[in-house]
């Protein structure tokens, strides 16, 4: 507990309220049929990359952080340098870890 907290004992309720507002805004949306944008982007990014290279699901790391004004979605896909094009794969494309933000 720092000095600042010492003089501001009632400090935690506003934090609780903000956290709940962010969480519930998202949860209400997803239970009432509104699409979860982050989840859609996540799936489509994985599908898009999967069209060009074979993805080892052990080498995929997805992180999300839902914020008030900005949410972030990080999709790290590890692709070996000896990359094999998936059948029907399109143009030759340098595979880099995808990193996207969406609000």
């Amino acid at each position: 507990m720092n000095l600042f907290n010492l003089f501001r004992r009632q400090g935690t309720a506003p934090v609780a309220r903000d956290r709940l507002q962010i969480l519930l805004a998202y949860e209400r949306g997803s239970t009432r049929g509104a699409p979860d944008l982050l989840a859609i982007l996540r799936e489509e990014i994985l599908t898009a990359v999967g069209r060009h290279v074979e993805i080892d699901s052990n080498r995929v790391n997805v992180r999300m952080d839902r914020g008030d004004k900005v949410s972030t979605l990080e999709v790290d896909i590890e692709i070996p340098n000896t990359v094999r094009m998936a059948p029907g794969g399109g143009r030759r494309k340098r595979a880099v870890p995808a990193h996207r933000s969406a609000s």
Partner: peptide
């Protein structure tokens, strides 16, 4: 304090949709 970072859950793992480390 991790509610904003949930991507996958226990059932996703049991159903094979996500790997445990993810």
């Amino acid at each position: 304090g991790a509610e904003r970072r949930v991507v996958y859950d226990l059932i996703n793992v049991t159903q094979g949709i996500a790997k445990l480390p993810q």
